[in-house]
């Protein structure tokens, strides 16, 4: 039999986590990586994977010793495991729902996205193979991926590298990058989404 305290621990972890727990955990992750002599930056993995797949012989930007970056690939692999465990064994009773504000549900409705009451799914329906037959799904997965990969390397970092690691080290370039992230994100949200969803 599974002891009671273990079940209680599982239930405790399974609740939705408040924002401050998330923030403190992210800071802890950044600290652990610094303490291990590394740096928190997930998008670097795209470059490492390119190099490992042979791009190191095609372009000097990818001439890196990718084996020195193996640790970062392991963080990514751990994130895959973590995502599997959190969604399969530590799901809250309504773990498939994102608890967004009522105003957000209204904004989504104005774009033509309808939901039952305010039960907005945690993961949208266009993250699926069948959605690829629809130009919107294709644009979001393939187009979004390309922009994220290109932009992250151009800016030299993503949310983890700039917004977390960079701002924590009081780096002005990271602040500029984060301002760029928001200008781009707001342009997409306010000006391009009405064209995509209507």
């Amino acid at each position: 039999m599974v002891p009671d305290w273990l079940v209680q621990l599982r239930d405790f972890i399974s609740q939705p986590w408040p924002w401050w727990v998330g923030g403190l955990m992210i800071a802890l992750i950044m600290f652990l990586l610094l303490w291990f002599g590394k740096n928190f930056g997930m998008s670097e993995n795209f470059r490492v994977m390119c190099a490992a797949d042979g791009a190191d012989e095609m372009n000097e930007f990818f001439k890196i010793n990718w084996r020195d970056q193996e640790w970062n690939l392991l963080v990514a692999l751990g994130a895959v495991f973590g995502g599997y465990m959190a969604s399969h064994y530590f799901a809250a009773p309504d773990g498939t729902v994102a608890h967004v504000s009522a105003a957000t549900v209204e904004s989504l409705r104005s774009l033509g996205l309808q939901f039952e009451g305010d039960r907005v799914p945690l993961v949208p329906e266009w993250y699926s193979w069948t959605a690829l037959f629809n130009w919107r799904g294709l644009l979001m997965v393939i187009g979004g991926g390309f922009l994220v990969g290109f932009g992250a390397r151009y800016a030299g970092g993503c949310t983890s590298g700039h917004a977390i690691s960079g701002l924590s080290a009081l780096e002005a370039p990271s602040l500029v990058s984060v301002i760029g992230f928001f200008l781009g994100g707001m342009t997409m949200t306010y000006f391009i989404f009405p064209l995509i969803f209507k």
């Binding site: 997930m42 993995n45 932009g151 992250a152 993503c158 200008l183 707001m186």
Partner: peptide, 23 residues
């Protein structure tokens, strides 16, 4: 930082995911 960040932001909002959530 500003141009690359802007392009990243477009993709972040469009796909709703940045590199860590993707994994």
């Amino acid at each position: 930082y500003i141009i690359g960040g802007f392009i990243f932001g477009l993709g972040w909002a469009l796909a709703g995911i940045c590199p860590a959530p993707m994994f």
